[in-house]
Computed example of a mutant assay.
Amino acid sequence: MVLIKELKNETEWKAAFVVMKQLRSHLDEVNYLQLVQEAIQKEGYKLVALYDNEKMVAVTGFMPMITLYNGRSIWVCDLVTDSDSRSKGYGEALLNYVQKWSKENGYDIVSLSSGLQRVDAHRFYENKMEYDKVSYVFLKRV
């Protein structure tokens, strides 16, 4: 049985680290927990997990944003499926959850960025999920 639920406390966030670490390998558990807590408190970040037969197999993190170019929108910060559970529709199910949440809460755009090297993910977003490639994201460390 598949279940999708929002993770609301440190114990649940900690359980998600095993999966999230596969996407955010630069984070250790302490920094991850601090960032999740701060993002939830200050940015409205939501951390959501997909369970298959009570085993967490995928997670997503997203947050509402208001910008002049998109208006009220949702930004998908993180989307990852456990490496042993890929290509089973879990990423699609989580992204559909985010899109439904977005629509139900008055946000009519869902957007995300994806690393240039993640060609398979790009195919998934464009072909399977029907996302449009509309920009490049630039980053400078200061």
Rank of each mutant, 00 (worst) to 15 (best):
L95G: 00
K42Y: 09
W75E: 12
L95R: 03
S73F: 01
S83V: 10
N31W: 11
M56F: 03
Y90P: 04
F138C: 12
Y107A: 00
Y136C: 11
K5T: 08
L116A: 11
K14T: 14
Y51I: 03
K21V: 03
I74S: 06
I4L: 06
K133H: 14
F138V: 10
Q99C: 06
S83T: 15
N127T: 14
L35Y: 00
S73N: 03
I109S: 04
A58P: 04
Y136M: 13
A93L: 09
K128Q: 15
E104Q: 12
S87T: 08
V48G: 04
V98E: 05
V137W: 00
Y69K: 14
V98M: 01
Q117H: 13
L112I: 07
D108M: 08
L3E: 14
R24W: 13
V110T: 06
L79D: 01
A49R: 07
Y125P: 07
Q41T: 11
V36I: 15
K100M: 10
I4S: 02
E43Q: 14
N127V: 10
L33C: 06
I109P: 03
Q117K: 15
G71T: 12
K21Q: 15
A15V: 02
V80A: 05
S111C: 06
S73D: 08
R24V: 09
E54P: 06
L27C: 02
I40C: 05
R118V: 00
M56Y: 02
L23N: 06
W101T: 03
G89W: 01
H26W: 11
N9W: 10
Y51L: 13
V30I: 13
E6V: 13
V19R: 07
K14E: 15
W101A: 06
N31F: 11
V18C: 12
D132F: 04
T81D: 06
L7T: 01
A39L: 04
Q34A: 13
V137I: 14
V80N: 06
I74E: 03
G61T: 00
K100Y: 09
T81A: 05
K140L: 13
S73C: 10
H26P: 02
Y45S: 04
P64M: 00
L3C: 11
V134H: 11
L112A: 07
V19K: 04
M129R: 11
E43G: 04
E104S: 09
Q37P: 07
W101R: 07
D78I: 02
E12G: 08
E130G: 09
K88T: 01
E54V: 05
R123D: 11
G115N: 14
G91L: 01
L23D: 01
Y32Q: 08
K8W: 01
L23K: 09
N53P: 02
Q22T: 13
N96T: 03
V2K: 14
Q117T: 12
L35I: 06
N70A: 13
V57Y: 08
P64K: 12
Y125M: 00
K14F: 07
L7V: 00
V80E: 07
G44L: 04
V30W: 02
V57A: 07
A15W: 01
R123P: 05
E29H: 06
A15M: 09
L79Y: 03
L68A: 13
L3W: 05
F124M: 07
L94M: 00
K88W: 08
K88H: 12
F17G: 10
W101S: 04
N105I: 01
V19T: 10
K46E: 10
E10K: 15
S73G: 03
L35F: 01
K88D: 02
S111F: 15
Q117V: 09
S73K: 00
L68W: 08
K14Q: 15
I74M: 09
